[in-house]
Design a protein around this nucleic acid. Structure first.
Lengths: 144, 144
DNA sequence: ATGCGCCGGTCCATATCATCCAGCATAACG
DNA sequence: CGTTATGCTGGATGATATGGACCGGCGCAT
């Protein structure tokens, strides 16, 4: 799937996506045109979907984070789905098998704000909110 | 917290972290030294924690994704925690309030692989696995 | 076995970009 | 009203990216 070179390139970029091509190339022992070409192909193949930024929500006042499991009431599924998309404090949401239909991540600045948001979906779905106490594992890549 | 300029800079970088300073500056109507300085300060302040890459796990053979809720058996908490950290297929894990102690995201290449991994923690914790059917919301930033 | 074409690599020249510095405008403040 | 801190700009300079020419190894058909 990926050869060893590609893996090292992805790893380096995962650690710092703004590294220069020159340095990237040097670290994997390639010339910069080669590294550049490999990078381009990783993007073309869709392996690398995007280069992005990791923001620390705490510094922006989002002191509370919760995982919300959401089970829409009969007939409310698409309305609930739309609502989740529209509330920007939901930053991730997966549609899953099992009793809970959706599992979403919520960032808020206060318990009050959390309550307000949960209330907005409360009449269309059953919810179960688990407040995040610690992030044991911050986003990492599965083995390449 | 962040002024409007900063917000636009973060937004642009969230969309493409490898954009050149020059282009970044142009898009927010600043000179490149100014944009560079603001970027530096966003990093210093810890608002921007890292520049990273979004990988599409599907292209690497990870066709299955699950959200696993994990409730360690009495006395097993730290052992379970260590196990989660050691299994690289777990890419995120939060310690939460409520019945479930941990909520983790798991990437695997097959149901068999999933079963093996769940088995490894099965004797130390109760687990509840929800397979991801669709990603309603891929990672986005909360309102800045 | 030999020649051919493709793939992935290097090196070099040129274009583009980042960074440093000097200088300017503005706002806060004694 | 002068002083200072802050954040900006433009231009010079050094660093980096990019495109082109070229090369070697490998698989394949003749």
């Amino acid at each position: 799937m990926l050869d060893d070179m590609d893996r090292r390139i992805v790893d380096l970029l995962a650690a710092n996506a703004r590294i220069s091509l020159k340095e990237l190339a040097a670290r994997v022992n390639l010339s910069s045109p080669s590294a550049s070409e490999r990078l381009r192909r990783l993007e073309d193949r869709g392996v690398i979907r995007a280069f992005t930024v990791e923001v620390e929500p705490q510094t922006l006042g989002y002191t509370l984070q919760a995982i919300v499991r959401i089970r829409p009431l009969p007939g409310q599924l698409s309305r609930v789905q739309k609502l989740i998309e529209e509330i920007p404090q939901f930053t991730e949401c997966d549609k899953v098998t099992g009793d809970d239909c959706f599992i979403a991540r919520l960032f808020v600045r206060s318990i009050t704000e959390m309550d307000e948001i949960i209330d907005r979906i409360g009449d269309k779905a059953e919810t179960n909110t688990a407040i995040v106490k610690a992030q044991l594992l911050k986003r990492r890549l599965p083995p390449l």
